[in-house]
């Protein structure tokens, strides 16, 4: 037992040291830490929404017309909406759909894009050609337009909106991973593995993929923000979640009509979109900086 653990530690010593260095660097990055806190706060708010608000039924969509458009007050810190629902409760519940759209889109896009990129980069030749031309096809369309087309073809629901956005997103990961793989493939440790007769799938899984994960992670983190924005845009034009499910984009869409008289209805969900998107972008920047000290130094 002791020996086994020691083996692992020894074998991974370099990596552990590297992680520790990254941890220290990250903690020094005030913006990144603040972003992480904001994101965690929103995530906790979404998860524990039913316990955080006195009006969980309104968060889920129950109208409360007697309090239609109450301005912000101690009872309703963010005011109430066009059906009298507490805007704070709606923003907390809206985080559920917005954050999960952001996360799921990126997870799906990475899951499709990364293996394809590794295949294209590692094999080259016609495999590369085929995969790259397919990504070109997807990239030829403006992403929001393609997502709108897919979502309107599939019929609007939360899942379809998510799929539609993910479908427009994966080619970016394919390109990123392919470029990384192209250079990794020529490195000595890969050549050595090949020379020792390691099978190709194992080389890709053990030697290529772990080494491309850092740029993918950086990219994915900033993309969550953009995916949330796209999700909000889809809901804004009525192709995202179905009412009465709360969604930040849908709330801004409805609330903007009342913006002159009842600004709180659109402003708070808008602020939530703004904060979360910004936080994910800053977090992505932070991760890039610590993962790759070179760029950081060159930037400074």
């Amino acid at each position: 037992m002791q020996r086994w653990l020691g083996d692992i530690i020894r074998r991974n010593e370099a990596r552990l040291l590297e992680y520790r260095r990254m941890g220290r660097a990250f903690r020094r990055d005030v913006l990144a830490v603040a972003s992480l806190i904001v994101i965690i706060a929103f995530a906790l708010g979404a998860i524990f929404a039913p316990w955080l608000t006195p009006y969980p039924e309104q968060g889920e969509g129950e109208p409360n017309l007697s309090e239609k458009f109450s301005p912000p007050s101690p009872e309703h810190p963010f005011g109430t909406d066009n059906l009298g629902r507490d805007v704070l409760a709606r923003v907390l519940y809206g985080g559920r759909s917005s954050l999960s759209i952001g996360l799921m889109v990126v997870v799906i896009a990475v899951a499709i894009g990364t293996p394809l990129g590794a295949l294209a980069g590692y094999f080259g030749g016609w495999v590369d050609e085929l995969i790259m031309r397919v990504t070109d096809m997807f990239l030829a369309f403006p992403p929001l337009l393609l997502a709108i087309a897919i979502a309107s073809a599939l019929g609007n629901s939360f899942t379809n909106a998510m799929l539609a956005i993910a479908i427009t997103w994966w080619p970016w990961y394919t390109r990123l991973v392919r470029a990384q793989t192209l250079s990794l493939r020529e490195r000595e440790f890969v050549a050595a593995a090949r020379g020792m007769g390691v099978r190709t799938p194992t080389i890709i899984a053990r030697h290529i993929l772990p080494n491309v994960m850092t740029p993918v992670l950086v990219q994915a983190t900033s993309d969550i923000g953009s995916a949330i924005l796209t999700g909000a845009a889809m809901s804004f034009i009525g192709l995202g979640v179905r009412p009465p499910t709360a969604d930040w984009g849908a709330m801004v869409s409805t609330g903007r009509v009342y913006f002159l008289g009842q600004p709180w209805f659109a402003a708070f969900p808008g602020l939530a979109i703004f904060l979360v998107t910004l936080a994910f972008n800053l977090l992505g920047d932070g991760i890039r900086d610590v993962a790759d000290p070179q760029t950081r130094r060159s930037v400074q």
């Binding site: 969509g61 066009n82 609007n156 009525g238 192709l239 009412p243 009465p244 869409s253 009509v257």
Partner: peptide
Amino acid sequence: NTGNLDEEQAGEIYRA
């Protein structure tokens, strides 16, 4: 109709 607030609200109160 997508985006028609009156029809949407009419549905939301009926739903409840």
